[in-house]
Nucleic acid binder design. Structure first.
Length: 191
DNA sequence: TATGAGATCAACT
DNA sequence: GTTGATCTCATAC
């Protein structure tokens, strides 16, 4: 069977609530290292928990640009987190990539992360950025060009939906999407 | 299994 | 000065 189709930037020029579930099961590689996306969260510009909610700043400027680019920010002053910008230019909506099932470049990921447990290599937004070597230099880069490589899922999958993690605002919105039953989630979904 | 501290940066009050 | 789209390690049950 042929390799799954590359995801074009037009894929992201849609509502975050369509893009987010469509990303589950897709393959994300950075310089050939990565795996299957198993968990994401949607952040809409009308959402009090979104970085873009309060307007444009130097940090979130990429969210206000065209869709199909990476928005990378520092979390708690310690970790990097990766988002895909969606919808139209100026819409300032994005999908946070929260967890991967590692498939490519296991050795490189283990070296960067310093952990042996495969389940914990990419189970969390900060962890997967460390494993893939993502940092500020990736902020604003197009997702359909190197070092990024995104491929659409080929299998039919079941998507689980639930409330997002770690928020203090808009905690009730069910905008977290995951691969049902995956053991590589940052946290399980409630049945 | 669960809770708490610490790391440390940008935005906001 | 406080807070947050986090994670690890330590200590307590």
């Amino acid at each position: 069977m042929a390799r799954p189709a590359l995801i074009h930037r037009d894929f992201f020029a849609r509502s975050v609530h369509r893009v987010a579930p469509d990303l589950i099961g897709a393959t994300l590689l950075v310089n050939g290292v990565g795996g299957l996306i198993v968990e994401v969260e949607a952040y809409h510009h009308t959402d009090p928990a979104a970085h873009s909610y309060g307007g444009r700043t130097e940090r979130n400027a990429v969210m206000f640009g065209p869709p199909g680019r990476a928005y990378v920010y520092r979390s708690y002053g310690v970790h990097w987190c990766l988002n895909f910008v969606c919808e139209g230019e100026g819409s300032a909506s994005a999908v946070l990539i929260r967890a991967l099932e590692p498939t490519e470049g296991l050795a490189a990921m283990r070296r960067r992360r310093g952990v042996k447990n495969e389940r914990l290599l990419c189970a969390g937004p900060g962890r997967l950025c460390e494993a893939l070597g993502i940092a500020r230099r990736h902020n604003g880069l197009a997702l359909d060009k190197p070092p990024f490589e995104l491929r659409a899922r080929t299998e039919k999958i079941a998507v689980a939906i639930g409330p997002r993690i770690g928020l203090t605002r808009a905690i009730e919105l069910p905008w977290r999407y995951g691969l049902k039953g995956s053991r590589f989630l940052s946290r399980p979904f409630r049945a």
